[in-house]
Amino acid sequence: MAAAERVPGILGRKIGMTQVYDEQGNVVPVTVVQAGPCDVLQVRTTDRDGYEAVQLGYLDKPRRLAARSERGHVAKLESKRAKSRAAAGVEAIAKAGCEPKRFIREIRGGAGDLQVGSKIDVSALEGVARVDVVGTSKGRGFSGAMKRHNFHGQRATHGVKKCHRALGGTGASAFPSRLFKGKKMPGQYGAARCTMRNQKLVKVDAEQNLLLIRGAVPGPNGGYVVVQQTNKM
């Protein structure tokens, strides 16, 4: 299998929305994402892992908050096992040697010239026209069918009583005598992984580590997002 091409991508945080003007003087609604610099924590290879990807880490986490496993993930730690393995002549796995990270995600695709320990900043996305943005949507709790599935609810008058926002019928009668699986009903809505695909990348500000992405991005301000070159062409 040929080595996969590296997909330019980076981790970041949603700052908020605003609007800017393009060269023609049109208003462009943009979401500002503060992204990187990210450390490469691991490189997945076809030989060892069965697929190719780079694992990135974003934002330092104070050591006092990080578990030992989180600290050991990014840097070498002293341990009995490490000593005995070194004595047995087992080669230690490469570590990035950075602070523990708050947000760690893999970006599928080859590593290119990236190695464990290298850094990525927003300039990696320079020249990319369109991006996919993955985030966690705003949580809406247990929501009714109107909000969750855009049902119409029932009438305000004409004898409707106490069920104006109810979902209505859920199926037939004696046949099939059961509900079909996947029936749209009230339930947990939001706080789920959500991808906005093929969003225009308006501007890359390497000085302030900012990305300006046209349109909305999933999640609240301050939420973590993954921005990568779109695979929808």
């Binding site: 700052i15 605003t18 003007y21 500002v32 503060q34």
Partner: peptide, 14 residues
Amino acid sequence: MSQQILASVEKSSL
């Protein structure tokens, strides 16, 4: 902090 970043982004359009 985030408001300052947004303000700096808007600056280019003012």
